[in-house]
Design a protein around this nucleic acid. Structure first.
Lengths: 341, 341
DNA sequence: TTTCCGGCTGAGAGCGCTCTCCCCGGCGGT
DNA sequence: ACCGCCGGGGAGAGCGCTCTCAGCCGGAAA
């Protein structure tokens, strides 16, 4: 392939001239070549090759109003993103599916309070066709932003304001948190455990709330002293476990709202010389393999298909972009028995 | 703020009309408002506000040839990115600095073999003004790609081909790997250790090679049996440690090429009942806090200012984008003494 | 008063591409 | 032989913005 003529990049025009056809024809060929005689197609292809032509994205976007990129917005600072394997799996699913749809992934995260303005400008500026938003907290500004700038968006996890505003249903993908939690507690009860504690997630996230609901469903009139709140991190799980042990030294089972907190709890239990599952049975949530299978003993946990949910979000977004409607989707969960309970 | 008139987004034109000025004036105000009478500035600002005007990015890019975005390309599949705290810190530095420069970060990673074509199209399409590339392996296609599509790029870590092609110096930021490694080994020797092993990183990355060089500098004529190769992951560090212990059961010190491998090694040492540092002294590299401070005992390690290097890369790239030249930068390393050696 | 200058503002020409026409030529039907 | 149709290809009008350039106006200098 010969080098481009000079520092300036070749345009459609240049290709057209070299191939001896019009701009329109080159455009047709570049975009698939339908309805163009093979002779010309070949000529154009050759010219493209020789000049090293790459379509200018901005020009194309300007007229098509599509730019083939989708933003993944994570409402957490980057340290959380990179340390939580949950995001990793979700992003992996999204990434794969997006690539399959020939779309580009742009990963954004909020840098800190007040950073939403930047996100709004980015989204509003038309850099992306749509967005996938995660890890929303109850008072998150993101939903308002995407509404204002009119960017089609699919949420990961049930948004907290849904019930408050029954009229407006936003598309989201979530797993059956409540059902999963119920299954976990039921399993623990089936094991003959009497004093089942719960390490809940942060109270401003629906996934945490729903899991707590599920826990309560199975233990009506339960002891509030058996519930401690964590922040979905390993560290906070350890702290919550310490609290619970302090308040209810006789507990014989723990259901943690995610695997990371379960692993923190496990660490504390062992430090205190308690055997898992003999003395205390432990169940997690998520089935993040790098955590649930890595602990000793491996975690019994509630599996959700995280990667699949990511892919699903993309598919729903694509449908949205095609002007079709979209409904929230709740995916099933499944109890995975390992050694911890 | 009143809602936009209809579904279609307001343009410069609309703002101009509403404010009773020309497009040019609106453009001036939107871009800073220099050289426009205050009266008009206010009028325009008001109109912008009322219409909820947001500049169209594609149109702007088309004429300015700048789009305010920088790609961060990581030549690793996403699971590595998300599990390695090194990337986290580096990305954090980059992210902060980019935000300070009012530029947008676009995170890209290679999905697998053959995926480079996608990256090339993205870069070539003018989605970004420049790129930062990481974790290159020796035979990586990335350098060739950025050269071909003429995207200003700063590399993280010394590229492997540099010496082969002395004429062309690409800008990069790296720490003094060799010097750091030397300091680590010197420290170990100073502790009176005789049999100092090395868990090296993958042989196709210069950082690993340079650290190995440093190790050898201090132990001329060293025993090759004391070197095992890992892959910069916790797991591979554990495996390498096992190997070393098998080959040289009498070793009394280990220098691991990064903290993650050191923590894997530590795990194995403890499993074998060896005390650290009493029986085996251990030194890591990187000083990734979430690893080096979290182990028991905490790791003595060679610190490099990872976040600072990220920021530095951005600054160099910005200089490049302003048409100024840029030289490779080597940042200093420093031995941090903790309990493991 | 005239001239000049400097600060503001508006007109208009693109940036590179897509897409809607419209034209042209060949073919089948009458 | 004429008409209509259809497929292929070109001309040209923008997409929304920036930026140069020219014009205008008021005040300072002559």
């Amino acid at each position: 392939m010969s080098e481009p003529t000079s520092g300036t990049r070749p345009t459609l025009e240049a290709v057209a001239e070299r191939a001896g056809v019009s701009r329109a024809t080159v455009s047709r060929v570049v975009n698939g070549g339908a309805g163009v005689r093979q002779v010309l197609v070949d000529k154009v292809r050759k010219a493209v090759e020789e000049l090293g032509y790459i379509p200018n994205h901005a020009a194309r976007t300007l007229v098509t109003r599509r730019n083939g990129a989708v933003a993944v917005i994570i409402a957490e600072p980057e340290f959380r993103i990179f340390s939580d394997p949950f995001f990793e799996q979700q992003v992996r699913g999204i990434s794969r599916e997006l690539t399959a749809h020939d779309a580009q992934l742009v990963l954004l995260w909020v840098e800190g309070p007040g950073d939403h303005e930047r996100i709004a400008r980015y989204l509003g500026g038309g850099h992306v066709d749509g967005a996938l938003a995660f890890s929303l907290h109850n008072d998150d500004e993101l939903p308002e932003i995407v509404r204002r700038v009119q960017v089609p968006t699919v949420f990961g996890g049930r948004p907290g304001w849904e019930e408050a505003d029954g009229a407006l249903t936003v598309p989201y993908v979530d797993c059956d948190n409540r059902g999963g939690a119920r299954a976990a507690v039921r399993h623990l009860r089936g094991l003959g455990r009497r004093s089942i504690a719960h390490i809940a997630g942060p109270g401003d996230q629906t996934s945490a709330l729903d899991r707590l609901e599920g826990y309560r469903d199975e233990l009506p009139g339960g002891d509030p002293g058996l519930v401690a709140e964590g922040a979905f991190t390993e560290e906070s799980g350890a702290r919550a476990m310490g609290e619970l042990l302090h308040r209810r030294p006789d507990l014989d089972a723990v259901f943690a709202a995610n695997d990371l907190m379960a692993s923190g709890a496990l660490r504390v239990l062992r430090e205190r010389g308690l055997r898992v599952p003999e003395d205390v049975a432990l169940v997690g949530f998520d089935d993040v393999l790098s955590v649930a299978e890595a602990t000793d003993p491996p975690l019994t946990t509630v599996r959700q298909d995280i990667e699949g949910m990511g892919r699903l979000m993309v598919r729903i977004l694509m449908r949205l972009l095609d002007g079709e409607g979209a409904e929230p989707v709740i995916t099933p969960t499944e109890l995975v028995r390992r050694a911890s309970a």
